[in-house]
Design a protein around this nucleic acid. Structure first.
Lengths: 120, 120
DNA sequence: GGAAGCACTATCCTTTAGGAAACTACCTCA
DNA sequence: TGAGGTAGTTTCCTAAAGGATAGTGCTTCC
């Protein structure tokens, strides 16, 4: 007789696992947390502002990741009718609900770094 | 005169961003959250138990990810001297500190799914 | 009138992640 | 004695991620 899964075989647990996968797929890649974190800190930023804020990112990646985030309604893009067109990126109300997630990730990372220094 | 970054240019903010990168690099890949989540739920599991719990993972990935997690002291591996050797994987005290992070990710994912159903 | 800033897109290229399948090695039970 | 369970490793392969570079089109400043 074959053994079965025992731990994750409950509906609740499966839903939780699925939810984590959902979150991680929406926030996948090297840059999305940086972009969202930056937009939560400084509310309205242009493309070049973001380039300056996010160390190491290139135009291709920034452009692609912004599109992804906009499609998922986490950020909004507003073209201003200024002399040379400028664009304002900002976090949406919905995107702002990621703040607790980001805070947990950040404080865990800080604690991790400290524990490594202490020689854990 | 060149413009400078204004938002992320504070030490605090830089530390936070770095911390997020640290966390995400330790938990990178498709499977680490699943493994940790499973080990938090069901404390002591063997290799084959984990295979059954984590839907879709293969031996190569499981083996590699377990090694990564052990190196970072998030899980522990104990070889039992049973008749055919068995191995007990469990979460460490330190790994258990990830519970709040995982909870945030899960509950955000659940909320996201609900908001999509409601047609946000 | 050329440099420089805005906001991108497109192309090329390399690296990495991760899946499939086969294989090792040891033990037990029917 | 061979089927099935334990715990992996190794090899091969493909698809995706992401970096570098160049180019577009517009405007304003010096």
């Amino acid at each position: 007789m074959k053994k079965k899964a025992i731990v994750n075989d409950t509906p609740v647990c499966h839903v939780r696992m699925q939810a984590i996968s959902d979150t991680m797929s929406i926030l996948s890649g090297k840059w999305k947390f940086h972009i969202i974190g930056t937009l939560i800190e400084g509310s309205k930023l242009g493309f070049m502002d973001l380039m300056r804020e996010i160390d190491g990112i290139g135009t291709k990646m920034l452009s692609k990741e912004l599109q992804d985030l906009e499609m998922n309604h986490l950020i909004s893009r507003k073209v201003m009718d200024t002399k040379p067109i400028t664009v304002e990126y900002s976090i949406t109300e919905y995107g702002a609900t990621l703040a607790p997630v980001i805070n947990e990730l950040a404080s865990w990372g800080i604690a991790y770094r400290n524990s490594v220094y202490e020689g854990k």
